[in-house]
Amino acid sequence: MAANVFSRRALQATSRRLVAANPSTFSKTPLSRLPAPAAVAMGQHIQNRQAATTQVSQSGAQDILAAQRRHRPVSPHLAIYKPQVTWYLSALNRITGATLSGGIYVFGAAYLAAPLFGWHLESASLAASFATLPILAKVALKSLVALPFTFHSFNGLRHLVWDTGSSITNKQVIVTGWSVVGLSVVSALALTFL
């Protein structure tokens, strides 16, 4: 009696564990696939899965998508590229151009506004105040103007040559690039000290 009960309980426990571990073995018998007649009769043979949903408008969905896109990895930027004379000079061409043009724009606007603020930006007073600067400041200011000017001028010639379709092999671009660096440094020094 006792042994019988124990063995029956052991069998139950084992089968429960098996069902829990691998439900398909037991639930997918040919018989179990048939709908239970009682459930069909009561209209309860359709499964309903309850899920909380919210209505999202078209623009709301776009906002969610846009917010999600901001969390995508950002592709690596300039810092991953090997420093090369080709793209360094390309960047420098824009930087020097922006510097020189910015200087022209600042002076032009300031000269027009000078009477309003009582500034003296006439060439005579500018020259007089420049003359009072210490020699180091003079050299620094002159080279700060001369180097971007010479570089942008020589590199502009390089760009114009490229626009005709010549000197665009990798080797030629590197050679002309270093030539422009040398020429602009030498001519900037000449302009500063001569």
Partner: peptide
């Protein structure tokens, strides 16, 4: 290494 934050999507 994010030089520029991603702009509006």
């Amino acid at each position: 290494r994010n030089l520029l934050p991603p702009g509006p999507q």
